[in-house]
Simulated scan of single mutants.
Amino acid sequence: MDKKIMDVLTNPIKCKLFLEIQNCGETTAKHLSETFSDIPPATLYRYLKRMTNDKVLKIVNQTQVRGALEKTYAVDIDMTKDFKEILDSNSGEAYMQSFMQYIIGFAELFQDYCKRDDIDIVKDKSGFSLSPLYLTDEELEMLIGNIRDVIKPYGNNTSAAGRKLHSIGVIISPPKME
Score class of each variant (00 low, 15 high):
M1Y: 05
M1V: 08
M6C: 07
M6Q: 12
D7C: 04
P12R: 11
I13H: 02
I13S: 02
K14E: 11
E20P: 00
Q22S: 10
G25S: 06
G25N: 04
E26M: 07
T28W: 11
T28C: 07
L32C: 12
F36P: 00
S37H: 10
D38N: 04
P40S: 08
L48E: 03
L48Y: 03
R50D: 14
V56L: 11
V56R: 04
V56M: 12
K58Y: 01
I59W: 04
I59D: 03
N61D: 13
T63N: 09
R66Q: 04
R66D: 03
G67C: 01
G67W: 04
K71P: 02
K71W: 01
T72F: 07
Y73M: 00
Y73A: 00
I77T: 07
F83R: 06
K84Q: 08
I86T: 05
A94T: 04
A94Q: 11
S98Q: 10
M100R: 15
M100S: 13
Y102I: 01
I103G: 02
A107D: 13
K115W: 08
K115M: 14
I121P: 05
V122E: 10
K123E: 14
K123F: 14
G127A: 01
G127L: 03
S129C: 11
L133H: 12
L135F: 09
I144P: 02
I144D: 11
D149W: 10
I151Y: 09
K152R: 15
P153T: 08
G155L: 13
G155W: 03
S159R: 03
K164N: 14
H166F: 14
I168P: 00
S173I: 12
P175H: 06
M177P: 00
